[in-house]
């Protein structure tokens, strides 16, 4: 009995958006099939990896995560340049850790100056990520949007509570907005609609479903992302057709499983390799669910995931 390969009935397409500007601008989205279902449709733009850097030296990182950035962790500009020059980063994500009101609580203007310095020093697209504190992110991201008005930044997380203020600044200064919602397809759609109503154009919008690491609920974001792609591609839900950005590295490396030493728990094996694998595997799972941009940390995890993307799309 011969067999017939079933074809998914696709009716939609992920929106294609350009991040950054100039020669190093990056285009994401454009998929016409489920992730890596290349026998059914196209992925005209391969998923991209943004390397994360921090605006203040990280304190709680395990040694394995700090080692590749020795000597630059206290200088965001040098850190970004190292990522680009030594590790081939196509994008940078500046995590605004210093602005956390529960931490250093650095003021918005001072924080924006750091964004400006990094933006001036690099030519790849720059994602600027706050601390998910609505009020503080509003101040910080608005200040950064204004100070870097010709830089085509990507600003996140933009949540329902602060979408108007950050959205307005992004519209005014032509930055891309990352709409962030807590692991829920309906809330994701709702926020995309609200941002659209506010006047954010479709080519300046990406979505963040809130992701987590293996062991910390990755199955939830996995399924929400799969449902988003299903709605976008087979149910013509054009409010869910935005590219997906996954801020995954910090979720992985803060877990105790990524930190614990082999001496403390020999069954967990080599701590450095384990951290790298937890990051690379979490990223791979998210790629299969529909990630367009992965925000990652360890160069070796990034190398593994890049190879996976190459292998999965090999001719």
């Amino acid at each position: 009995m011969p067999f017939e390969i079933p074809k998914t009935a696709y009716s939609g397409k992920i929106k294609e958006i350009k991040l950054g500007k100039g020669d190093k601008a990056v285009t994401i989205g454009g998929e016409t099939a489920y992730p890596f279902y290349l026998f059914e449709g196209e992925m005209p733009n391969l998923p991209k990896i943004a390397m994360e850097i921090y605006d203040t030296p990280p304190e709680e990182w395990p040694e394995a995560a700090l080692e590749p950035f020795a000597g630059v962790a206290d200088d965001p500009v040098a850190w970004a340049q190292k990522c680009i020059n030594d590790y081939g980063a196509e994008m940078i994500c500046l995590q605004m850790l210093s602005t956390d009101p529960n931490g250093i609580d650095r003021g918005a203007d001072e924080a924006a100056q750091v964004v400006k310095k990094v933006a001036d020093a690099i030519d790849v697209p720059l994602i600027v990520w706050g601390t998910a504190n609505h009020d503080k992110d509003t101040e910080v991201l608005r200040a950064a949007a204004e100070l870097c008005q010709d830089k085509s930044l990507i600003l996140g997380p933009v949540e329902e509570a602060n979408h108007k203020k950050i959205g307005a600044a992004a519209i005014g200064y032509k930055h891309t907005v990352v709409a962030s919602t807590p692991i829920d397809i309906n809330l994701a759609k709702q926020l995309n609609i609200l941002l659209g109503n506010l006047g954010v154009s479709d080519d300046l919008l990406a979505t963040d479903p809130t992701v987590s690491s293996i062991g910390y609920g990755i199955e939830y974001c996995y399924s929400v992302m799969e449902r988003m792609r299903m709605a976008a591609l087979t149910q013509q839900d054009d409010k869910l057709q935005f590219p997906i950005i996954c801020n995954v590295a910090k979720e992985v490396w803060k877990t105790k499983e990524a930190k614990i030493s082999e001496a403390e728990d020999p069954k967990m094996g080599d701590a450095k390799k384990r951290g790298i694998l937890l990051e690379a595997m979490s990223a791979t799972v998210l790629l299969l669910a529909g990630a367009d941009v992965l925000i990652m940390r360890h160069p070796e995890a990034i190398k593994l995931v890049r190879e996976m993307i190459t292998d999965l799309t090999a001719k």
Binding site: I214, G215, G217, E219, D270, M281
Partner: peptide
């Protein structure tokens, strides 16, 4: 396999096969 590769795989398997 070693602990560092087996453990993440086992946990991922648990996650993906959890009944939603």
């Amino acid at each position: 396999f070693q602990g560092e590769s087996l453990f993440p795989l086992l946990v991922e398997r648990l996650n993906i096969y959890t009944d939603p």
